[in-house]
Amino acid sequence: MSNEPTPLERFIQGIIPENPTYRQMLGLCPTLAVTGNLKSAMTMAGAVLFVLFCANVIVSLIRNILKPHLRIVIFTLTIATFVTIVDRFLAAYMYSMSKALGPYIPLIIVNCIIICRCEVCASKQSVIHAGADAIGQSIGFALGLGSIAAVREILGAGSLLGFHVLPSCWPNWVIMALPPGAFFTFGLLMGTVNWFVSKKEKKQNNA
């Protein structure tokens, strides 16, 4: 057990080294679908944080009585429950946001990040590990979504979180707000991240 990551390692790994969006390439459906503006991306990241944290903690609590061949059923059941809670909560208190995100909130149920973390971390390690892992991964996911959404909102609408940041003479690149913009931005940002990583690795190899 000594070579398993500590809670702090789990937390840090989620943010950059194992970033769900750029390194693991998980949860790409919301990454492409709800990054048209920063506010909906952050709401999505918040929803994922809640669901991932609750699911990880519960799965970690019951990990010793989990039957291996029934584990996926239990993961899905747990995730679906918390997603439904988030969905109802948004409909009650953030109605317009709930309408804007539409089916993508219920689709968190099939978001691979969460089931991956339940499988990799929560079903094997303690509650503290699982909690730290959930928060780290969620921050990483928020960074991934936020970076794409910021680029798309600035170039597509000239604004950030609804405030104008570019001069009004900026011709809004509508394509950035449309689905192709998500692919362009995601590809370019992913390329940038990979370029930095490979540069860093080369340096380490040379040293």
Partner: peptide, 23 residues
């Protein structure tokens, strides 16, 4: 074998009913 699945399903179902009723 599925006692945990069944137990959790009942428990989750109950809490979702509560959420639905209150919201």
């Amino acid at each position: 074998q599925a006692w945990l699945v069944l137990l959790l399903a009942v428990f989750y179902g109950g809490s979702l009913a509560g959420v639905q009723l209150s919201l």
